[in-house]
Write a protein that binds this DNA or RNA. Structure first.
Lengths: 185, 185, 185, 185
DNA sequence: AATGAATGAGGATTCATTCAT
DNA sequence: GATGAATGAATCCTCATTCAT
């Protein structure tokens, strides 16, 4: 007798499932928006609904996990001494949708310790980069971390709402505006 | 026989219902977000579900009607010779949520004639204002209408995602950035 | 093209649906217990899920509506001057399951105005009957309405938990106990 | 390599786990009702889901095991010559919820050998007590074991449905009724 | 024999949309 | 043309049960 039910691969499938869920969530959120059905994510990950809920009890937890990875990327990026604000922006642009969702999340739950932690990490990344750019004379001394975060936030937001094909152009134009605002002297 | 059902006021209620629906939609979208249930709008308007559908066959149609009114406001505003870009921004800030939804809509349906028409009107408003500001020497010659629209779009976006209480502050900071970018010479 | 979707019979189906839902709820609760799926009730009533929720927003509302009908029956019963406590019990026995659910509901939500109202009505029914029985010398003067309600409650509870086939016997034995306790002199 | 997973303590943990599961089940059933999720019991017992299923293949088995312990308590109680029916009731009252579940179980599965065995033991406990009370003249000769079991059943039922805070009062009132019914002469 | 993750069926609830009146 | 009830698909979430380790 053949069964329609997927084989239970046991606990060892756990970490693999988690990875698959995160990857699926990235794809589904990117194509269908942040409010896509969670069931679609489980399906695309090839994982039962229950497993999704075990790993990520709610949509927010899932989002935080994604942002956590994104931030780890950004942190690795700023650890490289030659990294620039432009480079940071490139990464934000690549992750436009996730970035907006991150920023939405942080602004929507300013008191949640998890999101607060993410906000701090983002702040740290931006501050380090800003200090470095200012030291190199590439950025005006008047620019503050909140300015940059606001710019990043606006940029991510507009990109998330743009047709993917237009994003490079939109990003270039937006960034030019901020360049003018952030220019030294 | 007394009936609990609201009296059917007949065809003459048409225009009034339309107005009530638009007003209700503004309030509901503002308080519950753009994806609020349409039934909530009909209820708040004191109108049957069916009438909502008759006037506005779908959510987009309703949104377009709102933006149409908003644009008429903006057009009236720029008709006054003393109006400035800052003044335009004030209006956008007041309507942050609707403005973002408009921009979302326009970017999501670039080929729909209705949204294209809205986009053109927004463009015209911005262009007139821009020309005037540049003539007065208050804006750099390098600034183009798309720059301003992009700035407006980003501003509206970030405001829509902000806690209403923070909006004035966010708007002020964001606008300072664009001021720097748009400054003459 | 034939459609699987049931025809929309329009608002006129409303009262009929409500009746069908109540009848279905009685049957389903009786056969499957008070925690039977609401979807089963809608299905048995031949009504959409949404209609069930429109008429009865939650399980409690549905239960209250059932009890409301039951109480109306009991009230009609005590309006007949020849009605006795034994007769009341017969009715409670017939409605054992619903009666227990009613009592559960009333004890679980003592502060809900709806359940409080049901409790008052039940109290009134019992008090009237009790007074009449005491006047006729068929019940001891020491018996109070709460005593009777407690007895009814215990009886209904035990019946609800009994195999339907055993109920007459269980009821007879239980009632004999209370007779002894309630006897005059 | 450190593991988050609880150490597998091997077969020797068996009896200990069984005890922990029973204790956890008592607590969980008492606080969340008899239909609480089994996973909650395993969690509170600090035991894997699988172990729960090994010890108790289904909810009924678990319930029977609890009642088995309760009955052992009652049996020990009636072994003491000074024990009374009132004392028995006190114990039933303390275990109101479990007692009702027991009675539910017994009535729902009258043909299951396990529940039949429990019923017999309960019967024996009651009979011994009854005989003793009648011999002492504290109980009427007309009272039979089924009468007492029925009374106990009704009492347990009503208590299980009562607000815990009201239970002492409800128990006192109910017991007064049965006292009257059971009184000698 | 214990562990705990995986599975998916099932149930509650919401809401866009239709349609008789 | 207005009304609002009816419909059911879709989504969220829970939990009993299985099973690799």
């Amino acid at each position: 007798m053949t069964s329609k039910t997927k084989a239970n691969r046991g606990p060892s499938a756990g970490p693999e499932n988690r990875r698959a869920l995160l990857a699926a969530a990235r794809e589904v959120f990117a194509t269908e928006g942040f409010s896509a059905p969670l069931s679609a994510i489980a399906r695309r990950a090839g994982v039962g609904q229950g497993s999704l809920y075990r790993h990520f009890p709610d949509r927010t937890t899932l989002a935080i996990a994604i942002f956590d990875e994104n931030l780890a990327d950004l942190e690795a990026f700023v650890d490289r001494p030659e990294s620039t604000l432009d480079g940071l922006l490139d990464r934000v642009i690549e992750q436009a949708l996730a970035s907006t969702a991150l920023i939405d999340l942080v602004s929507a739950n300013p008191h949640d310790p998890h999101t607060a932690h993410l906000a701090e990490r983002l702040d740290a990344v931006v501050s380090r980069l800003l200090t470095r750019e200012q030291a190199a004379g590439r950025l005006g001394e008047h620019v503050t971390p909140p300015d940059v975060i606001l710019a990043v936030s606006m940029l991510a937001g507009v990109l998330a709402r743009s047709d993917p094909a237009d994003r490079p152009d939109v990003a270039r134009r937006a960034w030019a505006l901020f360049h003018a605002a952030f220019a030294p002297g």
